[in-house]
Structures are given as C-alpha cells and as structure tokens.
Amino acid sequence: MKDNSNKTLLFDLDGTLVDSFPGIRTSFLHTLQEMNWEIPTEERINRVPGPPMEWTLQDLGMSPAQAQEGLKIYLKHYGEVGWDMSSDFPGMRDLLLRLQDEGFRLCTATSKGEFFAEQVLKKFNMFELFEFMGAAQEDGPRRTKPAVIKHVLDSVGLTDPANILMIGDRSHDIEGSAEFGIDCVAVTWGYGEASEWEKARYTATSVAELEGIIHEWV
C-alpha cells in the first residue's frame, strides 16, 4: 500500500460532512425574529451556512454591535436546539474510515465553533477519526476560514501545501485554502453554487468521485 502518512486532508464540516442547514436555518430565523429584523428571501437564507454568522448579519444591514448581539442570540438558540437538527451525508463516515486506513492524516477546518463542531462530530461517530479538530472560536479572534486553517497548520506542524488538500463546499473553503497555496475539492452536495465551485482545483459530485480525486491527487 502507498505511504500516505505525509498527506493531510482538511475537511470542512457543515455542507461537507454533515447537513446542518435545518438547525442553522431555524436558529437564524429565531435570531432575526428576536431582533425584529426583516426576514430575507429563501434564496438568501439558503446561503447562510458557511461564513461566520456575524458576517451574514452585517450583510443584512446590521451594525457590528447589532451583529454581535445577534450572534449571541444565535449561539444560545443553536446550542439549545439547532445543533442537534443536523444529519450526516451518506457515505462520508465510511470514506473517512477508508482514508484513515490508507494512512492519510485527517483534520477538520471548519468555521463552526469548537464546542458545536465537537458535539456534531461525536453525534455521528466521526470525532475519533480526526487527528486534529480545527474549528472557529465561539468567543475569540479565530472566526474566519483562513484563521482556522492557519490554526490547523500551526498546531499539526504542516508546512508543505503540496501535501495538503482541502475539501469543502463554499467559496470560503476555496479562497481560504488558496491563501496558503492549498488546493481544494469543492463538493456539490453542500451549500455552494457553481460560481463558487469553479474556483476550486477539483469538483466532486459524489462521495465516490471525491474518493477518486483524493487518490489521483496523491
């Protein structure tokens, strides 16, 4: 078997490993209702997963202070209700098991907060499959995808971008990894759009296709 021990795969969480949209949507709408804020179109709501929530709230017209208030409301509701409404994408845990058996180093690089990321990964028995869980801070400066990726690189000691591959579904995954010279596979079963995926080095429309791309990348 080929030695893959020097190859590291960075996995996004929401929209890549799990479908967390039902809970994100519920907690997002709860936040807007609590703040008496206008509810956007369903098309706009569909693009909420991915970027930090405070970015989304500011994009809707909130001031930075209002967005921080909204973030607190969102996190409280998500912690009580939203996080447990997620489901795993079929075949992804089995793929992680195969990749682990093949010697790949597996890490997450998610904009989801550390506490919720761990809860969701444990819910679907994925937590133990990752060497390192890279996630955002619920209450701290590490909020953006580049900041999370840097945290992973520094924590695990990764220096050669040629030996690292990012797997995600949104432009934040693609652009964030590109800042470090890391190629990205865009998966189409998540929350992104074709205009986002076209910026990625690779695009996968199924778990089987993703597995093939990883093997070709090596």
Rank of each mutant, 00 (worst) to 15 (best):
K122H: 13
S87N: 08
D154H: 07
T144G: 00
S155D: 01
V152Q: 07
D101F: 02
R142G: 00
I149E: 00
G103I: 12
S171H: 13
V120S: 09
A117N: 12
L153N: 05
E128Y: 11
F180Q: 03
L165Q: 08
F115C: 00
H151C: 00
N125R: 14
D94L: 06
Q137F: 08
E102P: 01
D84E: 15
I149Y: 06
S86N: 09
M92W: 09
I164E: 02
K145T: 01
A109P: 01
A147C: 00
A178S: 15
N163G: 03
Q100R: 15
V185D: 08
R142D: 00
D183W: 12
T108D: 02
M133V: 15
G157R: 11
R170N: 01
F89T: 09
E128R: 14
M85V: 07
V148N: 02
S111E: 00
A109D: 03
G176W: 03
I182R: 05
F116I: 07
L97H: 13
V185L: 09
K123M: 08
L158I: 12
D139G: 02
T159Q: 05
R105G: 02
F130I: 13
D94Q: 15
M92Y: 10
A117K: 12
S171R: 14
A135K: 08
F130D: 08
A109C: 06
L121Q: 10
D160I: 10
S87P: 01
A135C: 14
D183L: 11
D94F: 04
F180H: 04
D88L: 05
S177G: 08
G134S: 06
N125M: 05
S171V: 15
G113C: 07
H172G: 00
Q100I: 06
L97E: 15
V152A: 04
K145Q: 01
G157Y: 13
Q119H: 08
